[in-house]
Computed example of a mutant assay.
Amino acid sequence: MAAPESGKHWADNARCSGQDPELFIPLSDGPREDPDEVRQLQGIALNRPLNFCASCPLAVAAQCLVESLRLDDEYGIRAGLLASERSALRDSWKHRIDAEAVSAVLRGVPVVLNEAERGEVISRFAADPALNADHVAWGLGIPRKYLWQLVREHNQSSALAPSTAIASGADAG
């Protein structure tokens, strides 16, 4: 008998695939909870979902974690981590800038970006008149008109930033 063909999407190979999603959302867990308290409150109720995660292939668990961070998933067990355990990772992820993702969007490739990456795309587009507005708008998944609005807002906030810094520096002295 031939081995079953792997799914085309990483989640097709996840051990939790087909399970009740509620199993992976402990009621007492959330992004601002203490993970140790959650584990103490939930006790053995966490064993089943965490065992599913532990039995996942490493590549699947890695994709699960990356997706949860990329989508800013605040609740539920992902990649064997409680939401409260992923909180610090989520905060770090929000502030990182993936240069490849930013470059892809500037070329017109739609990519899910965090807020810092979107800001970088707008900043680079505003600074480089050679970039194609239609490509950048497509990559961001927004209308061209809205892209130009974001550029105007970026330019206005950039023009205000130095004077704000000077004013706050004067206040400090």
Rank of each mutant, 00 (worst) to 15 (best):
P110C: 08
G76H: 00
A104C: 11
H95A: 12
Y75P: 00
E85S: 03
N51H: 13
V151S: 06
L27E: 13
G141I: 13
G141Q: 12
C56V: 01
A83D: 01
A170L: 12
L81Q: 00
S123Y: 13
V112W: 08
L46W: 02
N114Q: 07
G139Y: 01
D72P: 07
P26C: 02
D20P: 01
A133T: 02
M1A: 09
P162L: 11
S163H: 15
M1W: 05
H135C: 08
L113M: 03
E115A: 15
D29A: 03
E67V: 05
A127W: 05
H154P: 05
L41W: 14
A127L: 10
E120T: 08
R48S: 12
A167E: 09
G108S: 03
A126R: 00
F125S: 07
G139L: 03
V66P: 00
E33P: 04
P21A: 07
D73T: 14
A101D: 04
I122V: 11
W148P: 07
L65G: 10
F125M: 05
E85H: 03
S157D: 11
L106A: 05
R70Y: 04
N13C: 07
A159Q: 15
A62P: 02
I44G: 13
E153A: 12
D12F: 03
A3L: 09
A116T: 11
E153G: 02
Q40G: 06
D171E: 11
R118G: 05
R124W: 12
